[in-house]
Computed example of a mutant assay.
Amino acid sequence: MKFALTALAAVAAASPIFEQETFNSEPGFSLDLNAQRLVQLEGQPPVWMTELDKIKAKAQNIKFFDITDTQDLESFAATSHVKFEFPATPTATDKVTSVIKTLSTKGPRANLEKFSSFRTRYYRSDTGKDSQQWLLSKIQDITKSASSSLKELVNLSEFSHSWGQNSIILSINGSTTPDEVVIVSAHQDSTNMWPFLPAPGADDDGSGTVTILEAYRALVAADFKPERTVQFHWYSAEEGGLLGSQAVAKEYAARSVKVVAMNQFDMTAWVKKGTREEAGIITDFVNEDLTAFNKKLVDTYLDIPYVETKCGYACSDHASWGKAGYASGFTIESSFENSNHYIHSANDRIDISEEFSFTHMLEFSKLAVAFAIELGGWA
């Protein structure tokens, strides 16, 4: 596949340190730019391209699935997944409100300061693995604070991947219908246009990562014991073509797991100067009924309104679950055109602009809590 010359390619041409043989021996990375990958773009048959071509495509904002290891994922959409109806209106307002009152910006700020301090969380880097292990330890710390009876319901595991940075799955087992699963998710990896450059990824998707982590903390503090199983997922390798979420979705679909719904939180911190503070509700490549329910949750529990917006094909991990035939949705910090323009650069930092807002992130923690309780139930 041929790509037009970009700023990325121009940097490579001008800088000897970006010669391909140097790339392939870069310390701290396990990345072969000549490796062949099967990539699927919107409306086109899959094509083989090199890892370097994938990087060029991403730099041009071309969205794609890397389906090298998940070529049959779409076939599961034709199987008889259980279809669930979503409530006409929220029904657990007292319980949701009691939990969201305990949410704080203190934990997310401290966690994101650390999480974005890794030079990069690129999924094929040593620091990407280190950041994943740090995140795992934070989830473990929160779980240790749970009541003894809640701990018996919690299962924390790593979903192993060949590239080294694993996805993380936290499950609170349901008491009434444990075979039905509600998923709250974010992706933990980050990238720069060249993966070997610094990528603090404070907003993309450090913000979503700590947003749902704060929701989990508040639920643990409230001794939340759901009727359905509620899971929190932190995916690896979203920036590599939704690799981690595709692997997890395929494994769930192969086991015929009854996923009620999954909701992705990717970028939750940015409020563009001069715009109204809003929660972006993605309306393309999502489940319409779940999206309508998400709007009702925003209206009921958030202090800001929603705005409908679109982000395109394969733009985040919800697309993997939709491809597998499950109901998936996606909420983002704003309308897509007003979202953070520093992503995929060394400037995706907490301190780069007053537009980075922890109180805005808190609104999305409210949404994650509401999603978990309203669809998971509370025994």
Rank of each mutant, 00 (worst) to 15 (best):
W194V: 15
V210L: 07
P226Q: 02
A186G: 02
H161Q: 13
L219Y: 06
V220A: 04
D130C: 08
K114L: 13
H161G: 10
K114M: 11
L197S: 13
S148R: 13
Q188K: 07
S167V: 03
A146H: 08
G208K: 01
L136N: 12
L219D: 01
F118R: 08
E113Y: 06
T211M: 06
K129G: 06
D179F: 11
D203V: 10
T176H: 11
D203T: 13
K144C: 14
S160L: 11
F118Q: 07
A202Q: 04
I169C: 14
E152V: 13
Q140H: 13
K129H: 12
F115E: 00
Y123W: 14
L150C: 11
T127Y: 02
T177L: 14
Q132I: 02
S167K: 03
S167C: 07
W134Y: 12
A221R: 07
L150T: 06
S116L: 05
D189C: 00
Y123C: 09
G201A: 01
Q188S: 11
D179H: 12
L136W: 11
D130L: 05
R119Q: 14
D130W: 00
Y216D: 12
I172H: 05
K129L: 12
D179M: 10
N155K: 11
I183Q: 03
R121D: 00
T191P: 08
S145M: 07
S148G: 13
L112R: 01
G174Q: 02
G164M: 04
A222D: 08
I142D: 09
T143N: 10
R217I: 08
I139L: 14
I172V: 12
A221C: 08
S171Q: 14
S157W: 05
A222G: 09
I172D: 05
N155C: 11
S145V: 08
E158M: 11
L136I: 15
I139K: 03
V220F: 04
T176P: 07
A215N: 02
L135C: 04
D203I: 09
P226K: 01
D203Q: 13
A146K: 04
S117C: 10
V220P: 00
T127C: 06
A202M: 06
P226R: 01
S207R: 03
V184H: 05
F159Y: 10
N192T: 06
A215L: 03
K225C: 08
K114A: 14
S207N: 05
D179Q: 15
I183A: 06
D223H: 09
E152G: 15
S149C: 09
S160A: 07
V181P: 05
K225E: 10
S148F: 11
S175T: 07
A218T: 05
A221D: 12
P200N: 04
A215G: 02
K151L: 08
E158T: 10
L153K: 10
A199W: 02
E113N: 13
R119V: 10
S160I: 11
